[in-house]
Amino acid sequence: MDDALKRRLIEAMTATVVAYADELTALDQAIGDGDHGLNMKRGFEAVLADADTIVAKPLPEALKAIGTTLVMKVGGASGPLYGTLFMSLGKALPAEPTIADLARALGAAIEAVKARGKSELGQKTMLDVLAPVQAALAAGETDLGMRLPRVANDAAAATAPLKAIRGRASFLGERSIGHVDPGAHSSALLVGAICGVLGA
Protein backbone atom coordinates (compact mmCIF):
# COMPACT_ATOMS: atom_id res chain seq x y z
CA MET A 1 0.00 0.00 0.00
CA ASP A 2 1.56 3.33 -1.00
CA ASP A 3 2.19 6.21 1.37
CA ALA A 4 -0.39 8.49 -0.22
CA LEU A 5 -3.17 5.94 0.32
CA LYS A 6 -2.16 5.41 3.94
CA ARG A 7 -2.25 9.17 4.45
CA ARG A 8 -5.72 9.43 2.88
CA LEU A 9 -6.96 6.69 5.24
CA ILE A 10 -5.60 8.53 8.28
CA GLU A 11 -7.05 11.84 7.06
CA ALA A 12 -10.46 10.29 6.36
CA MET A 13 -10.68 8.54 9.75
CA THR A 14 -9.61 11.70 11.59
CA ALA A 15 -11.98 13.95 9.63
CA THR A 16 -14.89 11.60 10.36
CA VAL A 17 -14.13 11.33 14.07
CA VAL A 18 -13.76 15.12 14.32
CA ALA A 19 -17.00 15.74 12.38
CA TYR A 20 -18.96 13.33 14.58
CA ALA A 21 -17.25 14.09 17.91
CA ASP A 22 -20.25 15.98 19.30
CA GLU A 23 -22.65 13.24 18.24
CA LEU A 24 -20.46 10.53 19.86
CA THR A 25 -20.22 12.58 23.02
CA ALA A 26 -24.01 13.05 23.10
CA LEU A 27 -24.52 9.26 22.79
CA ASP A 28 -21.98 8.71 25.55
CA GLN A 29 -23.66 11.30 27.78
CA ALA A 30 -26.85 9.24 27.50
CA ILE A 31 -25.36 5.94 28.68
CA GLY A 32 -21.71 6.49 29.62
CA ASP A 33 -19.38 9.12 31.00
CA GLY A 34 -19.75 11.54 28.09
CA ASP A 35 -16.17 11.65 26.88
CA HIS A 36 -16.14 9.29 23.88
CA GLY A 37 -16.27 11.96 21.15
CA LEU A 38 -13.62 14.12 22.77
CA ASN A 39 -11.37 11.13 23.53
CA MET A 40 -11.57 9.75 19.98
CA LYS A 41 -10.96 13.24 18.54
CA ARG A 42 -7.86 13.68 20.71
CA GLY A 43 -6.58 10.23 19.70
CA PHE A 44 -7.03 10.58 15.95
CA GLU A 45 -5.75 14.16 15.90
CA ALA A 46 -2.57 12.78 17.51
CA VAL A 47 -2.42 10.09 14.79
CA LEU A 48 -2.84 12.76 12.08
CA ALA A 49 -0.15 14.92 13.68
CA ASP A 50 2.21 11.95 13.38
CA ALA A 51 1.07 11.00 9.86
CA ASP A 52 4.43 11.77 8.17
CA THR A 53 6.19 9.17 10.32
CA ILE A 54 3.35 6.65 10.21
CA VAL A 55 2.78 6.56 6.43
CA ALA A 56 6.50 6.01 5.79
CA LYS A 57 6.22 2.62 7.54
CA PRO A 58 4.97 -0.57 5.84
CA LEU A 59 1.25 -1.17 6.48
CA PRO A 60 1.67 -3.60 9.43
CA GLU A 61 4.03 -1.23 11.28
CA ALA A 62 1.86 1.78 10.38
CA LEU A 63 -1.19 0.09 11.93
CA LYS A 64 0.77 -0.79 15.06
CA ALA A 65 1.94 2.84 15.33
CA ILE A 66 -1.67 4.06 15.02
CA GLY A 67 -2.69 1.61 17.75
CA THR A 68 0.09 2.70 20.10
CA THR A 69 -0.80 6.37 19.58
CA LEU A 70 -4.48 5.68 20.34
CA VAL A 71 -3.53 3.77 23.51
CA MET A 72 -1.40 6.66 24.71
CA LYS A 73 -3.67 9.56 23.72
CA VAL A 74 -7.32 8.54 23.88
CA GLY A 75 -7.54 8.30 27.65
CA GLY A 76 -10.88 6.51 28.12
CA ALA A 77 -11.49 2.78 27.88
CA SER A 78 -11.77 3.23 24.11
CA GLY A 79 -8.00 3.94 23.94
CA PRO A 80 -6.88 0.42 24.83
CA LEU A 81 -9.81 -1.10 22.89
CA TYR A 82 -9.22 0.75 19.60
CA GLY A 83 -5.47 0.56 20.24
CA THR A 84 -5.70 -3.22 20.56
CA LEU A 85 -7.82 -3.37 17.39
CA PHE A 86 -5.26 -1.48 15.27
CA MET A 87 -2.23 -3.21 16.82
CA SER A 88 -3.80 -6.63 16.19
CA LEU A 89 -4.58 -5.72 12.58
CA GLY A 90 -0.95 -4.68 12.22
CA LYS A 91 0.23 -8.02 13.56
CA ALA A 92 -2.05 -10.04 11.29
CA LEU A 93 -1.91 -8.16 7.96
CA PRO A 94 0.75 -8.40 5.24
CA ALA A 95 2.02 -5.19 3.60
CA GLU A 96 -0.27 -5.70 0.57
CA PRO A 97 -3.40 -7.37 1.91
CA THR A 98 -6.19 -9.04 -0.07
CA ILE A 99 -9.84 -9.06 1.03
CA ALA A 100 -9.25 -12.55 2.45
CA ASP A 101 -6.28 -11.20 4.46
CA LEU A 102 -8.47 -8.39 5.79
CA ALA A 103 -11.19 -10.83 6.83
CA ARG A 104 -8.71 -13.06 8.66
CA ALA A 105 -6.91 -10.14 10.34
CA LEU A 106 -10.15 -8.51 11.46
CA GLY A 107 -11.22 -11.86 12.90
CA ALA A 108 -8.01 -12.03 14.94
CA ALA A 109 -8.37 -8.38 15.99
CA ILE A 110 -11.95 -8.98 17.17
CA GLU A 111 -10.71 -11.82 19.40
CA ALA A 112 -8.04 -9.48 20.84
CA VAL A 113 -10.63 -6.75 21.55
CA LYS A 114 -12.89 -9.36 23.22
CA ALA A 115 -10.01 -10.36 25.50
CA ARG A 116 -9.06 -6.74 26.26
CA GLY A 117 -12.62 -5.73 27.10
CA LYS A 118 -13.58 -9.11 28.63
CA SER A 119 -16.61 -8.87 26.39
CA GLU A 120 -18.62 -10.99 23.99
CA LEU A 121 -21.00 -10.32 21.12
CA GLY A 122 -24.45 -9.02 22.02
CA GLN A 123 -23.27 -6.95 24.99
CA LYS A 124 -23.84 -3.57 23.29
CA THR A 125 -20.26 -2.78 22.30
CA MET A 126 -18.09 -2.05 19.25
CA LEU A 127 -17.87 -5.84 18.74
CA ASP A 128 -21.49 -5.85 17.61
CA VAL A 129 -20.42 -3.75 14.59
CA LEU A 130 -17.03 -5.32 13.92
CA ALA A 131 -18.34 -8.91 13.83
CA PRO A 132 -20.91 -8.46 11.02
CA VAL A 133 -18.38 -6.39 9.06
CA GLN A 134 -15.88 -9.25 9.42
CA ALA A 135 -18.54 -11.75 8.33
CA ALA A 136 -19.29 -9.74 5.19
CA LEU A 137 -15.57 -9.52 4.39
CA ALA A 138 -15.16 -13.25 4.95
CA ALA A 139 -18.11 -13.99 2.65
CA GLY A 140 -16.14 -12.12 0.00
CA GLU A 141 -19.21 -10.49 -1.49
CA THR A 142 -18.94 -7.99 -4.31
CA ASP A 143 -19.27 -4.23 -3.99
CA LEU A 144 -17.86 -4.29 -0.44
CA GLY A 145 -17.04 -0.55 -0.54
CA MET A 146 -20.77 0.18 -0.74
CA ARG A 147 -22.03 -2.74 1.31
CA LEU A 148 -19.76 -2.64 4.37
CA PRO A 149 -20.74 0.88 5.55
CA ARG A 150 -24.41 -0.19 5.33
CA VAL A 151 -23.71 -3.41 7.25
CA ALA A 152 -21.82 -1.38 9.89
CA ASN A 153 -24.48 1.34 10.21
CA ASP A 154 -27.30 -1.20 10.49
CA ALA A 155 -25.32 -3.12 13.11
CA ALA A 156 -24.67 0.05 15.12
CA ALA A 157 -28.36 0.97 15.03
CA ALA A 158 -29.18 -2.58 16.15
CA THR A 159 -27.31 -1.99 19.44
CA ALA A 160 -30.07 0.40 20.59
CA PRO A 161 -32.45 -2.28 21.96
CA LEU A 162 -29.61 -4.18 23.66
CA LYS A 163 -28.87 -3.96 27.38
CA ALA A 164 -25.29 -3.02 28.22
CA ILE A 165 -23.34 -5.71 30.10
CA ARG A 166 -19.85 -4.18 29.94
CA GLY A 167 -18.44 -0.71 30.58
CA ARG A 168 -19.94 2.31 32.30
CA ALA A 169 -23.27 1.82 30.49
CA SER A 170 -23.75 -1.45 32.38
CA PHE A 171 -24.32 0.60 35.57
CA LEU A 172 -27.55 1.81 33.97
CA GLY A 173 -28.86 -1.73 33.38
CA GLU A 174 -32.30 -1.54 31.77
CA ARG A 175 -31.91 2.21 31.26
CA SER A 176 -29.15 1.58 28.71
CA ILE A 177 -31.85 0.12 26.44
CA GLY A 178 -33.01 2.45 23.66
CA HIS A 179 -29.67 4.18 23.09
CA VAL A 180 -27.15 3.35 20.35
CA ASP A 181 -23.82 2.32 21.86
CA PRO A 182 -21.21 5.09 21.31
CA GLY A 183 -18.40 2.60 20.59
CA ALA A 184 -20.56 0.75 18.07
CA HIS A 185 -21.33 4.08 16.40
CA SER A 186 -17.68 5.18 16.24
CA SER A 187 -16.74 1.77 14.80
CA ALA A 188 -19.37 2.14 12.07
CA LEU A 189 -18.09 5.66 11.31
CA LEU A 190 -14.53 4.37 10.91
CA VAL A 191 -15.69 1.53 8.64
CA GLY A 192 -17.47 4.15 6.51
CA ALA A 193 -14.38 6.37 6.38
CA ILE A 194 -12.09 3.49 5.39
CA CYS A 195 -14.47 2.19 2.71
CA GLY A 196 -14.88 5.72 1.36
CA VAL A 197 -11.14 5.80 0.63
CA LEU A 198 -10.58 2.20 -0.47
CA GLY A 199 -13.88 2.18 -2.37
CA ALA A 200 -13.25 -1.45 -3.32
Partner: peptide, 11 residues
Protein backbone atom coordinates in the same frame (compact mmCIF):
# COMPACT_ATOMS: atom_id res chain seq x y z
CA UNK B 1 -11.79 2.62 40.07
CA UNK B 2 -14.05 2.47 37.00
CA UNK B 3 -13.66 0.46 33.73
CA UNK B 4 -11.18 2.63 31.82
CA UNK B 5 -8.81 2.67 34.79
CA UNK B 6 -8.73 -1.13 34.73
CA UNK B 7 -8.36 -1.43 30.95
CA UNK B 8 -5.67 1.25 30.81
CA UNK B 9 -3.84 -0.32 33.77
CA UNK B 10 -3.85 -3.71 31.99
CA UNK B 11 -2.44 -1.99 28.92
Amino acid sequence: DLGGAETNSEM
